[in-house]
Design a protein around this nucleic acid. Structure first.
Length: 835
RNA sequence: GCCGGGGUGGCGGAACGGUAGACGCCGCGGACUUAAAAUCCGCUGUCCGCAAGGGCGUGUGGGUUCGAAUCCCGCCCCCGGCACCA
């Protein structure tokens, strides 16, 4: 027996009566309540001894002050993933911390007269409160603040280990200097237009003694991406950044009276063009330059060197590739051709790449060609292009060809010539095959206050002496005068600077530079495991059990800095036996960047920052979390506008009312409802596994829409309805944890929804039973017919043919072909005249 | 210049080579209300048509295919990265 269907009007009345009775959804009240309860119950404290482990890491925020939507955008979805994995039965470690050292703290302090320490820790308090309002399941017991001595002590400890292994060294180098920040910058911190990433000031070059980490020692291993599952976009960027090129290092003979050096080594990827060398280019800063410059060229050469040195990056770039250079008056000899080659200097030769010297082959390199054209140097062809007429080239020929004017190598294809000449050079002992990398060592010295002091002592007798481990940490003095002068503020702090030499006990001075903050982010995820452990950077047992990180999520803007440095750091400390495994982050997902409503990067200076606090106050954290996940694919980012959030708000209200409503139950089983439940579980599970939150939420919305329709039409059976409500709440739980918990309780289910297992779908129930078969004539849709899922081909064609709207377009005599795609469509192909 | 990613309604966005526009927002109409808000119901790519129905539609021009937003080739625009790397 079935209940008679109530008329629509009656339903509406009944429903509004119920709604009036039910308490309205008030996110503010329930969110606060549950956050407090979860915290009190330690619901998210991780059991680090658990068997089924999952380490989910989201990039830690910099302590800039207020959290804005840009912080929520990465965190809300990653929290959903953490909660999902928990429901899958994993003990999930999902920690958070603060990247607390760095220039902005110091600059803000200078501007506002607040001590960086005070500024930073006040910001942390505020951010911690905001982070908690997200309702994320962060394990606050693991919190790490990188400016705490108990953290940076281990930066210093690692630095000593690197020094011991020769991976940290001090060298004089031309460095990027920001005149406004009064500190050196890593290459990565200089924008493509030659300005400082932080303040936009044009960067200049300076020669300074600086500390470096030897990232290049791991260049080759860093090119191996096979042990990790990362977006190709990032691995490609890293590969290009490391920039491996295979070539030959070959000597050109130097025979200048009074100069000790008897050869100039150059690196080339094109040994096949070596017979085409008509000049040599040294970088202006090359140490040989003063030695080989002849008296008559001296003035001009010195002027050029001086100019190159003083140029800001902007000036260098603004000259827009116009090649300039000066002849030194010196010559070297091409050992293969026996020819004398004039030595020039030009700023297109870079001191730090290869050997700082370039062999000029104008016919087969565009830069050399432009240079030769400008200075009237000969341009002999040695690789004949396929259609070469034997004459002068109108531009350089970089492609393949046949070797000519190359002595014994004439007639070879240049690819073979490459190998042959390389072998010849090696046989003669003039050079050997080499690999060059674009990657440079990582400059970590900063002449600023708010960072980790580099634990070294300069002794007049013993030179550079490391601070013994048992004297760590070298504390950052609180009372420093941190106004920038170009020296580290620590240099003027007498009590800090003056110390005794650990070796000889005599008076000595401390290193006053601090470490760049990338040092902090290199290993914070390791420290999370045991943030207060004091016998090492990490409890070795926990490290063994939890590392590497299973899933890392964060912004793609860190592709070649943090994400590359952290890999380097990991490999280095792995070789010291501190961690195990090839890579620190097994899987990586990059969310996109959220922009201001104007489509520009969100920043206080642009005034386009959207603060989540008032949105949370108004719509609730759940709605705001959902909205961030709903606006589009997570990896895409984009401008942020609040236009659509009312849709989420309404949906949550509907869920609130739907779940608490009392349907008039039917007695026959509800196959439609069961199908919807299982279909939705499948979609949602697959979506969350692939971080597709927008379509996931759409699937849940469809489910609630269909539940509403079925309920209102009286076609739900008690048991199925209960299952539907339960599954809906379980799937909602990772996304909107508060409302899910509240409704879970209100429907008399045992605390906590977040301790439940994720629902599983039944394939049989998830499968569609009715299909819409599309009927086309010549590829145009003419009808749609409902058929059972298992329909046979013949029957499907028969039904399709019977459709009146199809018949109109058919002259059955002219059917040339029938395309049938099971479960999808029937397409009648007729000849054009009758179609 | 080179390497990625992208271009779909008024908007955010869906769509294993097979119903283009799921799910939402906005807008319009209706119910409820003294009224408004909230809520609920319906419509909503575009053009022709009273309708039934049909034409056109995924940056652009070609191609492959019974069938293309999806695959291939050329071009335009936007976003990100790299940019004298020998």
């Amino acid at each position: 027996m079935t209940l008679s269907r109530p008329r629509r009007e009656e339903m509406t009345e009944a429903k509004s009566a119920r709604n009036a009775a039910a308490e309205r959804y008030r996110p503010q009240a329930i969110e606060k309540k549950w956050q407090q309860k979860w915290l009190a119950d330690g619901l998210y404290d991780t059991d680090l001894n658990a068997e089924q482990r999952f380490y989910l890491l989201t990039m830690l925020p910099y302590t800039s002050g207020d959290l804005h939507v840009g912080h929520w955008y990465p965190m809300a979805p990653s929290d959903a993933v953490a909660r999902y994995h928990r429901m899958r039965g994993y003990e999930v470690f999902y920690p958070i911390g603060f990247d607390a050292f760095g220039l902005p703290a110091e600059n803000a302090a200078i501007k506002q007269g607040i001590h960086p320490h005070k500024w930073t820790y006040a910001n942390i308090d505020r951010m911690r409160r905001q982070l908690k309002s997200i309702g994320a399941m962060f394990d606050w017991n693991s919190e790490v603040i990188t400016s705490d001595p108990e953290y940076y002590r281990w930066n210093q400890w690692f630095f000593l280990k690197f020094f011991e292994k020769g991976l940290a060294y001090r060298a004089m180098a031309p460095v990027n200097w920001c005149p406004s920040c009064q500190t050196v910058l890593a290459n990565e911190q200089v924008l493509p237009n030659g300005t400082c990433e932080r303040c936009g000031t044009p960067v200049v070059h300076r020669d300074l003694e600086q500390w470096f980490l030897k990232t290049t020692a791991y260049a080759e291993e860093l090119l191996d991406f096979s042990k990790m599952d990362w977006p190709a976009q990032i691995t490609t960027m890293q590969r290009n950044w490391i920039g491996r090129s295979d070539g030959v290092k070959v000597a050109f003979a130097l025979d200048t009276p009074g100069v000790q050096q008897k050869e100039i080594p150059v690196f080339t990827t094109r040994p096949d063009t070596i017979f085409g060398v008509t000049f040599m280019v040294l970088a202006p800063e090359h140490p040989l330059v003063p030695q080989i410059t002849t008296a008559d060229r001296e003035a001009e050469v010195e002027a050029y060197v001086e100019r190159a040195r003083k140029q800001t990056e902007i000036e260098r770039l603004s000259i827009e590739r116009e090649k300039t250079g000066v002849f030194t008056g010196g010559f070297c000899r091409n050992l293969l051709s026996g020819e004398d080659v004039p030595i020039w200097i030009a700023d297109y030769a870079l001191l730090w790449y290869g050997t700082g010297a370039v062999m000029g082959v104008p016919a087969h390199d565009q830069r050399d060609y432009e240079f030769a054209k400008k200075y009237g140097l000969p341009i002999p062809v040695v690789i004949a292009p396929p259609d070469w007429d034997g004459g002068q080239l109108q531009q350089s020929h970089v492609g393949p060809g046949t070797m000519v004017n190359s002595g014994q190598f004439d007639g070879l294809r240049n690819e073979e010539g490459k190998r042959a000449i390389a072998e010849f050079i090696e046989e003669k002992g003039w050079g050997k095959r080499t690999v060059s990398y674009r990657l440079r060592d990582y400059l970590i010295s900063r002449q600023r206050y708010w960072g980790t002091p580099i634990p070294m002592v300069h002794c007049p007798k013993d030179g550079i002496v490391p601070v013994p481990e048992d004297q760590l940490p070298v504390l950052l003095p609180k009372d420093a005068e941190f106004k920038p002068t170009g020296d580290s503020p620590l240099a003027r702090h007498e009590a800090f600077v003056n110390t005794t030499c650990p070796k000889c006990g005599g008076p000595a001075k401390r290193e006053t530079d601090t470490m760049d903050t990338f040092m902090d982010s290199n290993w914070y995820f390791i420290r999370y495991l045991s943030p207060h452990y004091d016998r090492g950077p990490v409890d070795p047992e926990l490290a063994r059990r939890w590392l590497p990180v299973d899933q890392y999520t964060g912004g793609a803007e860190h592709a070649v800095m943090h994400l590359l440095y952290a890999r380097f750091f990991w490999k280095a400390i792995r070789d010291m036996g501190l961690v195990e495994g090839a890579e620190p982050f097994l899987r990586l997902f990059n969310q996109g960047q959220i922009l201001g409503p104007d489509g520009q990067r969100m920043s206080k200076s642009r005034g386009n920052v959207v603060a989540p606090d008032e949105q949370v106050e108004h719509y609730g954290a759940d709605a705001f979390r959902l909205y961030l996940m709903f606006i589009g694919p997570w990896d895409q980012g984009g401008p942020f506008g609040l236009e659509g959030i009312s849709g989420i708000e309404r949906w949550l209200n509907r869920v609130w009312n739907l779940v608490q409503s009392e349907p008039s139950f039917a007695e026959d089983s509800s196959p439609e409802l069961r199908h919807i439940i299982h279909k939705t579980i499948r979609r949602v599970t697959e979506d969350i596994e692939h971080f597709r939150f927008n379509t996931l939420i759409a699937a849940l919305m469809e489910m609630t829409n269909e539940m509403t329709d079925l309920r209102d039409s009286g076609r739900v059976e008690r048991q199925a309805w209960s299952e539907a409500v339960e599954c809906l709440l379980l799937m909602l739980a990772p996304l909107a944890p508060h409302i899910a918990e509240e409704l879970w309780e209100r429907t008399d289910r045992p605390y906590s929804v977040h301790a439940q297992m994720w629902p599983l779908w039944d394939d049989g129930l998830a499968r569609e039973e009715q299909l819409t078969l599309v009927v086309q004539v010549n590829g145009k849709v003419r009808d749609r017919i409902e058929v059972p899922a298992g329909i046979e081909e013949a029957r499907a064609k028969e039904l399709a043919l019977a459709s009146p709207s199809v018949r109109k377009h058919l002259d059955s005599a002219n059917i040339q072909r029938v395309v049938y795609v099971p479960g999808k469509l029937v397409n009648f192909v007729v000849d054009a005249s009758s179609g």
